[in-house]
Amino acid sequence: MSIWEYANPKKFMQTSAWALPWALAATVLCLSVGLIWGFFFTPDDYKQGATVKIIYLHVPAAMMAINAWVMMLVASLIWIVRRHHVSALAAKAAAPVGLTFTLIALVTGALWGQPMWGTWWAWDPRLTSFLILCLFYMGYIALWSAVEDPDTAADLTGVLCIVGSVFAVLSRYAVNFWNQGLHQGASLSMDAKENVSDVFWIPLVICIAGFILLFVTLVLMRTRTEIRARRVAALLARERLA
């Protein structure tokens, strides 16, 4: 059986109906274990105190903010190349989720930055990149909602997503060039020296898994909603014609 069969709305609805409860349960499990472990059973950082614990929200949200855009890019490419409607609707469904993750990353970053750097906002390259990413998400969502015909909207947003991805990467480098900031390096790089210590690391990985699952669950739910909405529109159109 080909993987593309899941791009058929009917097959997708069946499979996702089966997968959704499991994804939801796994999300709840991972997030509760990861967050409770992280918040209550890890020591305070010797320098940062208890504020460090916001890492369990901040880092996974930031990762998923970028990953959601990558998923939208892949889904847009699938739509443009193979014309699978579910793919376009999945990209549409992922955008508000990605935007929310971006906002969570920005807000938790501000809350963390205040005690750490003494300011809510700094024009640090990473913060700035996320602000720009936020604008890309807003533009993408606005274009979806502005175009009436669903296939036209899918095509236009697909093109925007591809072009936007290139410019988002360019912006990232441009912003790096523009200001070498105060953000700490990646917390999870494979390079052991830069890594946060193990006590923080394990619950963080669980939280990241939880955020990935949360993203999958939300996108599945929203895609199902979008498919139903398309179906309602199609049925209504048929009704009017008959």
Binding site: N8, P9, K10, M13, Q14, A17, H85, I227, R230, R231, A233, A234, L235, R238, L241, A242
Partner: peptide, 19 residues
């Protein structure tokens, strides 16, 4: 035509039987 409508809609993946 209305009668042939079901066939005309054959291309729309959002119609047909699914919940």
């Amino acid at each position: 035509a209305t009668g042939a409508l079901a066939q005309a809609w054959g291309d729309d993946p959002f119609l047909g039987d699914f919940a």
